[in-house]
């Protein structure tokens, strides 16, 4: 199986990710709309996802928090369209409440029980997109350095 492909559009503040799955479009849709299933895979391994609100239908809304120890990162948005072939939703990180991304998830049926997922995120500016891409990087790097600091302080490295 091939890994996720990513593309940052040069002309529009868009990030596109494609990935193939050994599952039918219907199963992919369920994994994205059933809150119990969604919580199992959407957050990093080191976090627990707590679903605070979930109404996966056209015109519904969602809110969840990724919890790691004492830290909590909240996200919320609206389900604009939930259909068999695609989900269109908004996405806001509570830490940057003015920012909102429009996400379009398309399930392309490849037959033989396989599906290609196209996930497109449109944000409101290039600055917004680049900050978005960078934010995870900084979190990752800072977390990494913090852990490294701990290791060094404790004299174990």
């Amino acid at each position: 199986m091939s890994e996720a492909q990513i593309e940052a559009d040069k002309n529009l503040p868009i990030i596109r990710i494609t990935r193939e799955f050994a599952g039918t479009p219907e199963q992919l849709l369920r994994a994205h709309t059933d809150p119990e299933l969604f919580a199992q895979w959407c957050g990093p391994d080191s976090t627990t996802v707590r679903i605070d609100h979930w109404d996966a239908k056209s015109g519904g809304a969602w809110r969840y928090a990724a919890v790691r120890g004492d830290e909590e990162f909240g996200f919320h948005g609206c389900f604009h369209e939930v259909g068999p072939k695609r989900i269109v939703q908004t996405f806001t990180f509570d830490g940057a409440p003015d920012g909102v991304a429009l996400e379009t998830l398309t399930f392309e049926d490849l037959g033989d029980g396989r599906t290609r997922l196209h996930a497109q995120s449109l944000v409101d500016s290039f600055e917004g997109r680049d900050a978005w891409l960078r934010s995870g990087m900084e979190t990752g790097v800072n977390e990494g350095y913090a852990k490294l600091d701990t290791l060094l302080t404790k004299g174990t490295v």
Partner: peptide, 10 residues
């Protein structure tokens, strides 16, 4: 890095 996080999620 963003791609790798997406891949880990998937």
């Amino acid at each position: 890095q963003y791609r790798r996080r997406a891949e880990a999620r998937y």
